[in-house]
Design a protein around this nucleic acid. Structure first.
Ligand SMILES: [Mg+2]
Ligand SMILES: [Mg+2]
Lengths: 400, 400
DNA sequence: AACTTGTTTATAAACAGGACC
DNA sequence: ACGGTCCTGTTTATAAACAAG
């Protein structure tokens, strides 16, 4: 013990299988059995995992992307990234994502996926005064849901998810106390886990101790094997990240941690569960009530469930680094228009008074397809380069 | 080598010599030779180091604080803190600080110190739409200048300080290469040193490499004894802190690091030098030109000076933790009005939609005399508790 | 293939201040 | 009242994993 505190590799940033790949359709690794080049019009291109991409027949600068249900989200991102890079930093292409099907007809039936994500996008849009790009993440989050192709309408009833009374997971085999199967380190960052915790409460706030307990209950690793310093890390994350805001009860006695509403991706643990046992239970099992070993005193067990995340049922989150993500235009939402990679086109009020030479040229050297946006004064006040800003707090879901 | 990377104690947060100290005048440690209770009106109270505090004769809820030139800034802060705590979290008292004198008459001659700080305050005020408190720091910075009682009008010509061509320090004895006297770790955080570096340039921006070089040139510790990881830390700080913004040259080839203008405290190294040798040289020695050992290739040595900070001539900065600092009303600035510790009184636009119970009650349990204010959307957007927000980026100067 | 620059996350630690004993 | 310990919260330092050029 008392190892030198190296960063454990729990959240590897994915290396993109595509490098620059101008026009390759399946150059790199195993294209898999899905490499069906069937029914591709002249303009269509195939990408690994059966992803097809073609120009929209009517809308200019718009690609229609058809994503098989079995496609890995990473493949989707790779394909979008490759296409995005093709267009360069000044590219104007937008993407319309079509889930699941392989028939080209469905491209016209665009309404199929404009309903669910709309809710989340609505609340995001209202904070993008200075930079409408922001939330590629939301789309990918939806993408993640889409690609977890068994859930149907299970875990996305409007993102508010009055959920704490319903954790929607099976997994009742009591974990004794010890290690391997359940006490593995979860693939989530502290920031993500804190969001899981807070978002699991109806009122969306938690005391520090409740956060500790929620995490211990759902990730036995922290109760059983983690060094006690993990609580320090939780506190550190709460303080460090703007997205976590401490509020005080009216009487001033208790302080609660909340999530800045504009920053809340509404991540919940059940969004990242993979339905390992029965992949098609559309309704929540409703209070599975596992009498988990709570050695700490914690009041009455109430009706809370506390189902620990079991072995590998957790989907990894994509890292917060949304550099790879593509801004996506949802089909029916004219209001939401996300041109790819053009931070310079957006109004930056003339406030920059930095005295001289290079000053405010928002030229992004590095081709960030979806530049990360700090929705704060950073851009509006300083009026400086929109190159980069705070990332979106947590990450979308990755299928498989 | 390869020690466990514990945090070195380079910036100790001061323990306040005053605890709660309701009405003590010199309770704690050595009151020093300055404990002259002379000419104190009935309402006046004495604090250590000769600091006197009394009600303003006309303005309600306002204290006049007379600070001897020899007083330590820490004593000043202690006194203000003690008085601030007396008034409790709902206290309304403001402070008018008078420098140097011991005669009560000068309290009427308030104009004496309203000139210099005004410049800095002007540029700060324009970003305090949502929270006019913000900048207790600016005042303390002025306080720091005031207490470095030999500099006179030396290093504060309007904060812009076209300075890189003039570093204003003596110290020409060439440091050979090795350790003790000059290669001690400076008492500044990376964040502070980066600010020193960037603010030393007229144009207020620097490439990463220039920052490295500036720091190595002025703090030989980093060239000679620090582990190479210190550069990692520099980069980490640049990325982490909002105050550092990367800009890109118009051709997109070079990126420069700048300081968000609203966040720039305009700290420069010469502000924290103690004039060890001759404490009363009012004008800058103008290009002392020390041919310092620059082993890295660094272009022509130009006319830059690069005077390394010498042994203990550096005043410590107060830590960024401005929790102890008191909002100060400057005498003649009606526009700048900083009531102490009343975050709740300020308008928080009704945006908070956090669903239920404790929600947005900005009750500060902990008595923070000057609540740290994040001048961003944090408060305006979320409309939540104003309890705490980002700190002011760097810290004022501490005398002695 | 190595190095530089930049972004994130993890971990340890130093403190402050309050609570509780 | 005065300590000692624990808990909560805020900052800073350091190492590291990656990405991209
Ligand atoms: Mg926070
Ligand atoms: Mg930064």
């Amino acid at each position: 013990m008392r190892e030198s505190p190296r960063r454990p590799i729990i959240l590897k940033r994915r290396k993109l299988p595509f490098q620059k790949s101008e026009s390759d359709a399946g150059g790199d690794e195993a294209d898999g059995p899905l490499r069906k080049t069937t029914l591709t019009p002249s303009t269509a291109r195939c990408f690994p995992d059966g992803i097809r991409m073609m120009d929209h027949p009517t809308i200019p600068d718009t690609q229609v992307v058809v994503i098989p249900k079995a496609a890995d989200l990473q493949s989707v991102i790779s394909a979008l990234t490759a296409k995005g890079k093709e267009c360069g930093p000044q590219g104007r292409n937008k993407f319309i994502l079509l889930s699941g099907s392989t028939s080209l007809e469905e491209e016209k039936a665009l309404g199929c996926l404009s309903t669910k994500p709309r809710d989340e996008l609505e609340k995001v849009k209202k904070e993008t005064e200075c930079f409408p790009l922001d939330d590629s993440l939301t789309n990918i989050q939806w993408l993640g849901k889409m690609s977890s192709d068994g859930l149907g309408s299970e875990s996305n009833q409007k993102c508010t998810k009055e959920d704490n009374p319903s954790d929607c997971h099976q997994q009742s085999k009591a974990p004794e106390k010890e290690k391997d199967p359940l006490s593995e380190r979860p693939p989530y960052s502290y920031m993500a886990m804190i969001q899981f915790a807070i978002n699991s409460k109806k009122n969306r706030h938690m005391t520090l101790k409740e956060i500790y307990n929620w995490i211990e209950d759902h990730f036995p690793f922290f109760r059983n094997v983690a060094k006690p310093g993990w609580k320090n890390s939780i506190r550190h994350n709460l303080s460090l990240h703007d997205m976590f805001v401490r509020e005080t009860s009216p009487d001033g006695k208790i302080s609660y941690w909340t999530i800045r509403p504009e920053a809340n991706r509404c991540l919940t643990l059940d969004q990242v569960y993979k339905p390992l046992v029965d992949p098609v239970t559309p309704t929540c099992p409703q209070i599975t009530q596992v009498g988990f070993n709570q050695q700490q005193k914690r009041g009455p067990p109430e009706l809370k469930k506390a189902i620990p995340a079991t072995e590998r049922k957790m989907k990894p989150l994509l890292p917060r680094t949304d550099s790879y993500l593509i801004p996506i235009q949802l089909p029916l939402g004219q209001s939401l228009f996300l041109p790819s990679s053009s931070p310079a086109t957006l109004a930056t009020p003339p406030h920059a008074q930095s005295s001289s030479t290079p000053s405010s040229s928002s030229a992004s050297k590095r081709v960030r397809i979806a530049p990360k946006v700090k929705p704060t004064l950073h851009l509006r006040r300083a009026g400086l380069t929109c190159r980069q800003a705070t990332p979106i707090p947590t990450a979308p879901i990755m299928s498989k």
